[in-house]
């Protein structure tokens, strides 16, 4: 866990850049007793934003869109994980039934592996 100055060093940010990113909602750290507390996940997210802007040529509106899509993606992954976990709790016969029924679904177009 890191306070703002310590986070800025790890994330390669100036304090005023951090303010801008916080206003933009690119980082949403938790707060403890009124002060923001940054986790390693926040560091990784900041490094991602740096990569988008510096290495991939993404502009600020682009970063908004990409972060939103990534967050939706992870939301979906979590839900998928929970569905899978719920299915695992079922009996063998129910699980087999699900697989058999899934095979009867209409086929989708080709998808990249």
């Amino acid at each position: 866990m890191h306070d703002a100055p310590s986070f800025c060093i790890r994330a390669g940010l100036e304090q005023r850049e951090l303010e801008v990113w916080l206003d933009a909602g690119w980082l949403r750290p938790a707060a403890r007793e009124g002060a923001p507390v940054f986790t390693d996940a926040d560091v990784a997210r900041a490094l991602l934003v740096h990569d988008l802007r510096r290495q991939m040529g993404v502009n600020d509106p682009g970063v908004d869109v990409i972060l939103d899509l990534i967050d939706q993606l992870h939301g979906l992954r979590s839900a998928l994980h929970d569905v899978s976990a719920t299915v695992s709790m079922q009996s063998e016969s129910v699980r087999m039934r699900l697989v058999v029924d899934a095979r009867t679904l209409p086929p989708r177009g080709p998808s990249r592996p």
Partner: peptide
């Protein structure tokens, strides 16, 4: 460490 390593377990940024 890449963000994806945290995204699923942390979930504070994820949306439904």
């Amino acid at each position: 460490q890449y963000y994806r390593d945290f995204a699923d377990s942390q979930g504070s940024y994820g949306t439904g």
